Amino acid sequence: MSGLGGGACAAAQAAPSLASAQQTEAVILTRSALLALDQANKTGNYTVLRDLGSSTFHANSAAKLSEVFADLRRQNVDMSATLAQPLSFNPQPAVDAKGLLRVAGAVPLGARVLYFQIAWAREAGAWRIYGIVVTASETTP
Rank of each mutant, 00 (worst) to 15 (best):
R73K: 15
N76S: 15
V103F: 03
S61K: 09
R74H: 10
Q92I: 04
A121T: 09
L100G: 00
R74Y: 07
Q85E: 15
R102S: 00
V103H: 01
I132T: 03
L101D: 05
L37Y: 10
Q22N: 11
R50E: 10
V77G: 07
W127L: 09
A36G: 03
P86Q: 14
A97G: 05
S80D: 05
I28V: 13
G131F: 00
A59V: 06
R50N: 11
R102P: 00
L72I: 09
A15D: 05
P91T: 04
L49W: 10
L37P: 01
N41I: 03
A124S: 14
N41D: 14
A19Q: 15
G3Q: 06
N60C: 13
R122L: 15
Q22G: 05
A62N: 02
K64N: 13
R31S: 06
W120Y: 12
L37H: 01
W120G: 09
P93C: 04
A111V: 12
T140Y: 09
V77F: 05
L4R: 14
T140R: 12
W127K: 10
S66C: 02
S80F: 10
A111H: 06
T135H: 07
Q13S: 09
S32V: 05
V107G: 07
G44H: 06
Q13F: 01
V95S: 03
D71E: 11
T56S: 14
A21F: 06
A8N: 03
S80Q: 15
V95R: 00
L52G: 10
A94R: 15
E25A: 15
L37C: 09
N90K: 11
S55M: 07
G105W: 02
G5F: 00
R102Y: 00
T139E: 12
